[in-house]
Amino acid sequence: MTRLAITYALLMALALASWLVVPAGYALPIAAVKAGLIVAVFMDLARAHPVPRIAALVALLLFALLCAGTYADVATR
């Protein structure tokens, strides 16, 4: 429970920082950190069976591929 409470406090601090303190340009990197915390601690992927980890990794790779394709499209217009 302590691990969860610390993660929750971190998530709230990051959310409040990107809402009220930090310039808007940092909002997406902060969102990525929050997403990582949720996946690793709340969804417990760090300690999950290899199959869910592979499924998550493949989804992440496909997402990266989609982002790269979008970037390539925008950059070459």
């Binding site: 429970m1 969860l4 409470a5 993660t7 929750y8 998530l11 709230m12 959310a15 929050k34 949720i38 601690v41 709340f42």
Partner: peptide, 9 residues
Amino acid sequence: LTSSFAMAA
């Protein structure tokens, strides 16, 4: 975020 914490708990 609070609901996620409650779910994890």
